[in-house]
Write a protein that binds this DNA or RNA. Structure first.
Lengths: 217, 217
DNA sequence: ATTGAAAATGAATGATCGTTCATTTACTTT
DNA sequence: AAAGTAAATGAACGATCATTCATTTTCAAT
């Protein structure tokens, strides 16, 4: 029900809650919403402060600059994503096809955290170089998970992939487009979407070049 | 070689070139470059003017507002894209598989006009409602081209698609992600990329659910 | 050469931007 | 209850924003 309840900045966890107000978390929540809706550059610190219900200057008790808010949101999203994958991968039976597990995980996670995902894809160019490099590292780490899955399938003969790196990016791009059009009020449930995209993802890498042979050059 | 030579705003074509300077075209070119690089909201009219080599006020001889520059760029891109498709579709032999034609066209066009594409996907939310509606209409028109191709294949039994609308968006999302990572200096030529994505697109909709049957529920 | 209109200038408009800071308020610890 | 620190206020900083406009320049048509 209540979404932002225990969000911690990045590290920094004092055993005593230390503060009487969880303003930092509310700043993150407001910035997340506003950045996702209007874009980082189009949102002012005054708008964030107003949404939090605080004066602009108060924001600087929690984040040194506006840029740091963006960095915090993007980096913690990537790390949460990677941690969620690690947790799932550990507890999953090995009998399930890894590609299926990954596709379902990605879709599920991205439909649940639409704003974070949106920001992480749209605001990369608004990150200052150092911050960009940090986020990009995490991003590549995530891509490499799928790449490894595809390489395994390639080696076992289940898949037929010309370039596993390209294929990984292609599948991720396909999946990540979902939140752009998905509406909760629409006809498709998240499970429906999982099934549709899962079949498409399987087919896109499957070792069955039947359609290709119809019109060989 | 010279790219922006005869770009006309949208309609308005005087038979006599009428003006001594083609400033409007240079404004479009500069705005295109800067919007693609930094984002609409992060680019000022002063930056555009400076890039054109003119004073800020001069921009207003050619575009009434900054928003109109963005609208012009996005709308003319979508219309150019649709016109390019129409021209290609008219002259193509019917023997070639329509999906192949579309995928190759999309990749080719999007690798050639990377900045236009980037803006058209990133700056949608910076369009004022009326302008957004106009661009969205063209966007849906483009999606419906692929959707119709998939429906034909579905009806002929060549494809097996749960939802052609979703599949069309999935394929377009997959293809449109290419300019995000493609580098001319990279190991893959545009033709390589066409081949890779073409096979993936074919497989994603092909009526060969072989891999799915391996692990039926 | 003169005319007339389009294009560019240069300066200004008020608004809004991110950020700072002295001061006050709120709350935890003693 | 007192002390001390974190958080919030309210006002201000200089910079920059999109846009306007009177004036000058440019240049094709006469």
């Amino acid at each position: 029900m209540h979404a932002d309840q225990d969000i911690m900045p990045m590290a920094e966890r004092d055993p005593s809650p230390r503060k009487g107000s969880r303003t930092a978390a509310r700043v993150r929540a407001s910035a997340l919403k506003l950045f996702a809706r209007h874009g980082y550059a189009a949102v002012s610190m005054r708008q964030i402060a107003s949404d939090v219900g605080v004066q602009p200057g108060a924001l600087y008790n929690h984040f040194p600059t506006k840029q740091d808010i963006l960095k915090d949101l993007m980096l913690s999203h990537m790390r949460d994503l990677l941690n969620a994958w690690s947790a799932l991968a550990d507890e999953t039976r090995q009998s399930t096809a890894p590609l299926d597990v990954f596709v379902r995980f990605h879709i599920r996670y991205h439909l649940q955290r639409r704003e974070e995902v949106f920001i992480s894809y749209m605001e990369l160019r608004n990150l200052e170089p150092d911050n960009f490099a940090e986020v990009e590292t995490e991003r590549r780490r995530y891509e490499s998970i799928l790449k490894a899955i595809l390489e395994d399938g390639q080696n076992s003969g289940a898949y037929r992939i010309a370039d596993t790196g390209v294929a990984a990016r292609a599948i991720i791009a396909m999946l990540t487009g979902i939140p752009n059009w998905y509406r909760e009020s629409g006809p498709l449930t998240p499970v429906d979407i999982e099934e549709i995209y899962l079949e498409m993802a399987r087919g896109s890498v499957a070792a069955t070049p039947l359609t290709a042979s119809i019109e060989s050059d």
